[in-house]
Design a protein around this nucleic acid. Sequence first.
DNA 1: CAGCAAAATCGTAATAATACGATATTATCT
DNA 2: AGATAATATCGTATTATTACGATTTTGCTG
Lengths: 110, 110
Amino acid sequence: MGATKAEEFTLRDNRIARYAKALGHPARVAILRLLAERQACMCGDIVEELPIAQSTVSQHLGELKAAGLIQGEIDGPRVCYCINEKEWTSALTVLNEFFKLPKEIAAKCC
Amino acid sequence: MGATKAEEFTLRDNRIARYAKALGHPARVAILRLLAERQACMCGDIVEELPIAQSTVSQHLGELKAAGLIQGEIDGPRVCYCINEKEWTSALTVLNEFFKLPKEIAAKCC
DNA sequence: CAGCAAAATCGTAATAATACGATATTATCT
DNA sequence: AGATAATATCGTATTATTACGATTTTGCTG
């Protein structure tokens, strides 16, 4: 993302940014949607559903895993991915809390 | 963000990604938090609060404005920024709806 | 063990994001 | 008009992201 000064911000804000960044690309949103919408968790079927190459899908999966939002489990010759419910809930909570901030404020100036 | 294929994904997923991307940097989260937490909307005071240069703050403000999350109004020699309540609510709704997807699913496989 | 299929990793090119200093704008005040 | 103060914009260096093809790894199957 270019030079960054992430360390100089609060842990809380970095946490929010980390989750948000993981959702910051339509391919990753689409992947998460697929994982959420299908009963079973997906593996390489994602590649067939999305307009990007296998290696790129794998890269996006890696980022989602790094953010903690999904987890993968080896299932025979393939890998079965699914949403990490715990982190997912955590992300929802953190983002919701953040988004509700202005609701508590009456005054508006512009 | 490097080469991108955003056009090939759904509008819905692009919309979510757009909001999420705006929140994808701790500086922008911090800026939004400042705008939300203070009664009045901020201007250059943000520069004093954050560990980044004035031009960088201005750049982040521009991105938040492009995403629709904030709006600025000229107020004398300064610019008064505040959260765009409408878009903010819209972002909350869209993200919430997305995050609640897996809750409707009983089966888990890993 | 050889062969196969799925996924990860590597190498790399193209592009976007981050950050800063310097400069230009803009609006106010004297 | 000129000076001042606040923002925006420009130019640019650095670093991150995205994407793909090629290759490697991994685990199963004959």
